[in-house]
């Protein structure tokens, strides 16, 4: 198990390098540069050259990449060109907001997804199942930002229950969490239902009945236990995407966070900040997948044996 963990972490190193190279190239391919945002109106070409040289933007791209990468590997994300602060400070301010939103949305969709999926599986083809599955189908086809705007309209503008925007207290979290979490809830519910139905046909259930086990216990202790294995896999693949989803929703709700920071820095071509934000999102996807594989190994002795 430990050997497996170490191997998995080592594999992340080349992936990390490849991802960082892709992020760096894409950003430098976007037309425009941060100097435009720094120059005073009417500044001449000499001033531009001075500024460009000051931020090292006149060096070949490969050299720029190397300077950035070696900094990152030593834990130095650099200094924001436009915002003129250490990138690490900007990230440290933004990340907790995004993490809180992402984790709440993840917890929300995990809990309600599993509960709804289980109810649907247990009442298969009867009305609770049909109701849940219809709602879930609607929920999974609606885009997040549209849902966000709809929720704002109903709960903030019409009902006045929650603030329209910002991040002052918990009530400002409710609508963003719903917006990010509902799509995930739908997905988890669907996967849970299918996995429960499939697990409910396993041969070993016969012997549990033969031992005189209560059907409720069979469903919750054995069928659900098996059904959760694929659910965990799906969830771990979504961890990164949920953080990404939080990013779009932050813009809709004008919340501080990684998303807001990313959009602002993109508009200003503030390379070091954009690179750091994207790198963090990519890392979240990679770590989520790793966590999922580890949890799966913990849940299934057959997977452990195959490691």
């Amino acid at each position: 198990m430990l050997g497996y963990f170490i191997r998995r972490v080592l594999v992340l190193i080349p992936v990390f390098l490849a991802v960082s190279a892709v992020i760096f190239s894409i950003i430098h391919l976007i037309p425009g540069d941060p100097i435009d945002n720094l120059l005073k109106i009417g500044a001449g070409p000499e001033q531009r050259e001075i500024m460009t040289a000051r931020y090292g933007l006149d060096k070949p791209l490969v050299v720029q990449y190397w300077i950035w990468l070696s900094g990152v590997l030593q834990g130095d994300l650099g200094t924001a060109i436009v915002a003129r602060r250490p990138v690490a400070d900007l990230i440290a301010q933004a990340l907790p907001h995004s993490l809180a939103l992402g984790l709440c949305a993840l917890a929300f969709s995990t809990f309600f997804g599993i509960v709804l999926g289980t109810i649907a599986a247990l009442t298969r083809d009867r009305w609770p199942d049909q109701l849940i599955m219809t709602v879930v189908l609607l929920g999974s086809t609606v885009p997040g930002f549209w849902l966000g705007l709809l929720l704002i309209l109903v709960f903030s503008v019409w009902l006045g229950m929650f603030p329209v925007s910002g991040a002052r207290d918990w009530s400002a979290m409710v609508l963003p969490v719903l917006t990010v979490g509902l799509g995930g809830t739908a997905l988890v519910a669907r996967v849970t239902r299918v996995a429960m139905v499939e697990a409910g046909q396993r041969d070993f259930l016969m012997l549990l009945h033969a031992k005189g086990m209560r059907p409720a216990r069979i469903q919750l202790r054995h069928v659900l236990r098996h059904a959760l294995i694929p659910v965990v896999t799906i969830l771990s693949l979504r961890i990164g995407w949920i953080l990404g989803g939080a990013v779009t929703v932050e813009v809709v709700f004008a919340r501080p966070g990684l998303g807001t920071l990313l959009i602002k820095s993109l508009n200003q071509h503030d390379y070091p900040v954009v690179q750091a934000c994207l790198l963090i999102l990519a890392m979240a996807v990679m770590l989520g997948t790793l966590a999922g594989d580890l949890i799966q190994a913990a849940m299934d002795p057959r997977v452990r044996a195959a490691l």
Partner: peptide
């Protein structure tokens, strides 16, 4: 308790996890 059952295929009779 009073009536026990031994099922046909031991390979799939036990909960694998």
């Amino acid at each position: 308790r009073r009536i026990a059952f031994i099922t046909q295929n031991p390979m799939t009779a036990l909960d694998p996890v």
